[in-house]
Design a protein around this nucleic acid. Structure first.
Length: 95
DNA sequence: CTTCTGACA
DNA sequence: TGTCAGTA
């Protein structure tokens, strides 16, 4: 299934950093630059969903391709817009 | 766990 | 500019 047992898909920043292969400081910087916005617990701890991990891997990929954080932010925004438009197109086709 | 600061290439 | 180490 989607994950091992009850606690499905929420990770602390230390775990997320390990999985993606970067440092905790970097992930916090990405958030400051608006690249992702993980959920916070009432205590302020960031909780990364599997969707967040996908974004983090995309960030690493784009950085390797030579983009800076501003460029990565552009790409992620455009991809989000593209997904939204694509979904809208499918809805209009369905009706 | 969080934030901030500074050093490095 | 992005990464990383150390700190409070």
């Amino acid at each position: 299934m989607a994950g091992r047992r009850a606690a499905v898909g929420v990770y602390a920043i230390s775990v997320a950093a390990q999985i993606v292969g970067t440092g905790q400081q970097n992930i916090r910087l990405y958030e400051r630059r608006g690249l992702l916005t993980p959920v916070r617990t009432s205590g302020g701890t960031r909780q990364y969903s599997e969707a967040d991990l996908v974004v983090l891997r995309r960030i690493a990929e784009l950085l390797e391709e030579g983009l800076n954080l501003a460029g990565v932010a552009r790409v992620l925004d455009l991809e989000a817009d593209n997904d939204r438009l694509r979904a809208e197109l499918q809805r209009s086709r369905a009706r």
